[in-house]
Amino acid sequence: MQIKDIMQTKVVSVRRALSLTKLLGLFREFHSFPFIPVVDGNNTLIGVVHIRGFFDIFKPYHENILMRNPLSLVAQEDTDIFDVDIEEGMGSLIIVADIMDKKVVKIEENQDLKEAYELIQLNKCEMIAVVDAENKLTGIISMFDIVMAVSKEKGLI
């Protein structure tokens, strides 16, 4: 079975210029989404935004700069959401491009379901974005979809 046979094609995606306030609104509406894909004008997948990105914006510097130096860890991580400085107006000043993750895990729609399963396992996530051969976003596939498809095949439902 191919991924495109069972993937969800109704996907909420955003453009990179969307404001934080609107983004949070989207998350609230579709609270089951662990992430929202980010696309450009041609529907090409350019990143994803996780709710985790929200923690990073209020830090004094971009944490990802330091990810590449193993000794930058300090004893106590005070990355505390209760302690962030949020000033009024920031909701419209910060946009998706500021917080999106460009290391996006994706899979092509023509690939086998088993490969999607393995990729989800490997990345310890719940769902991944599905693209076509030109890297355009066509859907999303979750562990739940895979379990359902397999159950159906085995005659459980």
Binding site: P60, I65, L66, S72
Partner: peptide
């Protein structure tokens, strides 16, 4: 940087340099 909640272009350059 965390203790004083420093932020700005200078801080970003500094972090890039030490990383």
């Amino acid at each position: 940087v965390r203790q004083y909640k420093a932020k700005g272009r200078f801080t970003e350059i500094l972090m890039g340099v030490v990383a």
